[in-house]
Computed example of a mutant assay.
Amino acid sequence: MLLDLSKLFGRSKNSKEVAKERLKLVLIHDRANVSPQFLEMVKGEIIKVISNYMDIDENELDIQLTRTKSEDGDRTVPALVANIPIKKVKDSGK
């Protein structure tokens, strides 16, 4: 499930895009048993933490909530998958 993070970065959307984003959040809520607001907070925190150490391409950011098999292989569990393009690593004080 691809999530559009454009609302975090101020880009405006038309009503079709807003409805699509809301539907995605509802589906994610059902899959992970967490609220859409909680997921938005998690995404925001991930972006903040990574941005402390790297310049990232926020326009190409891709965060998905999927299902994967558990370690025992008997069930599926939610998995947060993030593809975060890195522009450069910030000075680490070396």
Rank of each mutant, 00 (worst) to 15 (best):
L2S: 08
D4I: 02
L5R: 08
S6H: 01
K7Q: 13
L8H: 08
F9Y: 02
R11F: 04
S12N: 15
S12Q: 14
K13C: 07
S15Q: 12
K20L: 11
L23P: 00
L23Q: 06
K24Q: 11
L25P: 04
I28Q: 01
I28Y: 03
H29T: 10
H29R: 13
H29Y: 09
D30G: 12
A32W: 00
A32C: 10
V34T: 01
Q37R: 12
F38N: 08
G44K: 00
E45A: 02
E45Y: 04
E45P: 05
I46P: 00
I46R: 08
I46D: 03
I46F: 04
I46E: 07
I47E: 02
I50Y: 02
S51D: 07
Y53P: 00
D55Q: 11
I56C: 03
N59T: 10
N59A: 14
E60S: 13
D62S: 14
L65I: 09
R67F: 11
R67A: 11
R67T: 12
T68K: 14
K69Y: 14
D72H: 10
D72Y: 10
D72S: 14
G73D: 05
G73M: 07
D74L: 15
T76H: 06
T76L: 04
V77R: 10
P78S: 09
P78M: 05
P78F: 03
P78C: 04
P78G: 06
V81C: 13
V81T: 14
V81E: 12
A82K: 00
N83T: 10
I84E: 04
I84F: 05
I86F: 04
I86Y: 01
K87Y: 00
K88W: 03
K88A: 09
K88T: 03
V89E: 06
K90R: 11
S92T: 14
